[in-house]
């Protein structure tokens, strides 16, 4: 099964995401709490999919997406954020995200976004 890295500064969100995704059979290989940590851990763990928040300290998710895609143009990144504004969703997809899941999310929505990203 595919490997996933969770990126969010809020530990509770990562706890919920982990529970949902492990039930679907995915392996969580790493987690990060800011964009800088996300880039370093992407290089180290090379997950199949990254679930990326937008609002984080040090480096936000949109900029982290751009940096990871410069390292690996084939990286699959799904944004999971409460900031589901029209323009920000466009910004995330333009930056290279495969999908945008708005928090609070339904488990099936997150699972579908991962499946879509893996295709």
């Amino acid at each position: 099964m595919a490997t996933i890295m969770l990126v969010d500064d809020i530990a509770f969100i990562k706890l919920v995401q982990k529970e949902v995704l492990e039930k679907e059979g995915y392996e969580i290989v790493a987690d990060a709490s800011d964009g800088v940590d996300a880039i370093e851990k992407y290089k180290k763990f090379k997950p199949d999919v990254v679930i990326m928040d937008i609002t984080m300290p040090k480096l936000d998710g949109i900029n982290a997406i751009k940096s990871i895609l410069q390292i690996d143009p084939n990286a699959r990144i799904v944004v999971c954020s409460a900031l589901g504004q029209h323009q920000l969703v466009i910004d995330a997809i333009k930056a290279g995200a495969k999908d945008f899941v708005i928090k609070p999310f339904e488990p099936q929505r997150l699972a579908l976004a991962i499946k879509k990203a893996l295709k």
Binding site: T55, G84, Q85, Q87, K103
Partner: peptide, 25 residues
Amino acid sequence: SMANMITGRATILLSGKEKRIYITP
């Protein structure tokens, strides 16, 4: 996470189609 989601949802309602509103951690 509750505060983040409530504020995030409110920004969707405030921003409309053209604006961008950012929030801090």
